[in-house]
Computed example of a mutant assay.
Amino acid sequence: MATTSEEVWRILGELAEAQKETERRFQETEQRFQKTDELLKQRFQETERLMRRQNQQFNEQLGKLGNRLGEFVEWQVRPVVVRLFQERGIAVHEFYPGASAQRDGEGIEIDLLVVNSTEAILVEVKSKLTQTDVDEHLERLSKFKRLMPRYGDVHAMGAVAGMVVPDEVARYAYRQGLFVMAQSGDSVVILNDATFQPRRW
């Protein structure tokens, strides 16, 4: 059966319409994909923002907890610090929490300053003591008399205290000539042995 030219044109027209319909549907699908992609990007950005905010809040809470732990350790050390050093033959009788000074653009902060008329012990208190804490305390000791000249004639010594004191950090502080104080049960003790000779500044 022969195909007339009209039928050929009709078939070509139908094919052209079908192609247009296919292109239209393809464009609709592409637009849906683009909208879905944009929506996914927005959701991802919102989730990322939320995670950053939650992470920041977590870090803030962790920092506050660390500070509270440090305060807790300091409150444990305060009542016994004078007695512990007296038992070591250092006749201190006064202590000042949170001593600080500013001079010539420099500052110093001391968690506990334990003194008598001839000796001073600067105590740094941490929830978990690190070697960096020890090094920073050594630097603090080196500035002490210059920034707090009223103690210029005393023999200054250093001590570090912590709820957690790793063995290697305790050994490092000991070798630097510092007293090392740590929690033992419900109390605080000085870990240094009887032969220990503190460094004096």
Rank of each mutant, 00 (worst) to 15 (best):
A2R: 10
T4V: 11
T4F: 02
S5G: 05
E6Q: 13
E7A: 06
V8S: 06
V8Q: 05
W9L: 13
R10P: 01
G13T: 06
E14S: 07
L15G: 03
A16D: 04
A18S: 08
A18M: 10
Q19L: 04
Q19R: 09
Q19E: 08
K20C: 06
K20W: 07
K20F: 07
K20D: 03
E21Q: 15
E21H: 13
T22Q: 12
T22D: 10
T22L: 12
E23R: 05
F26S: 10
F26M: 08
T29F: 13
T29Q: 14
R32F: 08
R32I: 10
F33S: 02
F33K: 09
F33Y: 04
Q34D: 14
T36F: 09
E38C: 09
L39K: 12
L40G: 03
L40F: 02
L40C: 03
L40P: 01
Q42K: 11
Q42E: 12
R43F: 04
R43S: 10
R43T: 10
F44C: 14
F44K: 15
Q45P: 02
Q45F: 07
T47M: 15
T47W: 05
L50V: 07
L50A: 15
R52P: 01
R52M: 13
R53D: 11
R53C: 05
R53L: 07
R53T: 08
Q54C: 04
N55I: 12
Q57Y: 07
Q57F: 03
F58L: 15
N59F: 05
E60T: 05
Q61M: 00
Q61P: 00
Q61V: 00
G63L: 12
K64I: 00
K64Q: 08
L65F: 11
L65Q: 03
G66V: 05
N67S: 15
R68A: 09
G70Q: 03
E71G: 04
E71P: 02
V73S: 00
V73L: 06
V73G: 00
E74N: 12
E74S: 14
W75S: 14
W75L: 10
W75T: 13
Q76H: 12
V77W: 00
R78S: 10
R78Q: 13
V81Q: 00
V82S: 00
V82A: 06
R83K: 09
R83F: 04
L84C: 02
L84Y: 00
E87D: 14
R88K: 12
G89M: 06
I90H: 01
V92G: 05
V92N: 02
